[in-house]
Amino acid sequence: MTTIHQFENDFQDKIDQEAKIEPKDWMPDAYRKTNLRQISQHAHSEVVGMLPEGNWITRAPSLKRKAILIAKVQDEAGHGLYLYCAAETLGQSREQMIDDLLSGKAKYSSIFNYPTLTWADMGAIGWLVDGAAILNQVMLCRTSYGPYARAMVRICKEESFHQRQGFETLLVLSKGTAAQKEMCQDAINRWWWPSLMMFGPKDSESTNSDQSMKWKIKRKSNDELRQNFVDMIAEQIKLLGMTLPDPHLKWNEQKKSYDFGEINWEEFWNVVKGNGPCNKERIDARIKAHEQGAWVREAALAYAEKKNKIKTVSAA
């Protein structure tokens, strides 16, 4: 028993000294599980997150916008890929993770269960959803598990273009025709609250100590990150000449940050539970891609094995 205890102490020491944990290092089982869960949920979110924006690729209103949107959605596939690989270093196969997603066992970010109804949604997602994700991901660049941190560094480099292109999309709309302005405001209205929900329940909702903070998997609380986000967006929206759909949003001189209204937690929990507008469509789309891709994956493997055999024979 003393040995395990010793291992745990050494492990925590490493973390306290800001040393990264690498795949072959000893780690508490719960640390492995927590990371696996977090990284795979993150990976699933990237991949499912391709769908709402992917919807608009064939309808993008100009060739330039089409190219930007395709490149952006493709980046998200890359993010999913980097993260699945990072999670695999913890001992679970990508195939298993995908199975868990498709069977409904593993979760992804609820934000992607909202529909994309107009072109302006492409701007709002880039600006608000990627913007919210970036705050989280910048923090995760310093997470304690090495492969996760390295994946996040790569991802953050790519993400900076996502938020900018989103904002710029809205900026053009905000200076456009009356119909475009209306489209722009409507998208902001619909995506604002779900974006705030992305940061999760309030810190005060919790009763237990947070192991993730102690292990430095996470470094900021939900409320801290959400406040950073509100402060950032409340300033940027002025440049768009649009408004955020919150009558309680107000600068608080005392705390040097914005006050804002109460999130509709009932909606939040319902979307998490699968009652969001698009939960079923999203998972169905992933199942379809996975199942219809099975024969392709099998064929590639069979071909590789055949060629390998031929090589071994000729080498012998």
Binding site: V47, M50, L51, G54, I57, T58, K66, I70, V73, Q74, A77, G78, G80, L81, Y84, A285, K288, A289, Q292, G293, A294, V296, R297
Partner: peptide
Amino acid sequence: NAEWCGHGPVLEQDIAITN
């Protein structure tokens, strides 16, 4: 080909066809 984006048989090839 863009119709494949997000629906490819495996992530690596989703990225390839999108390129």
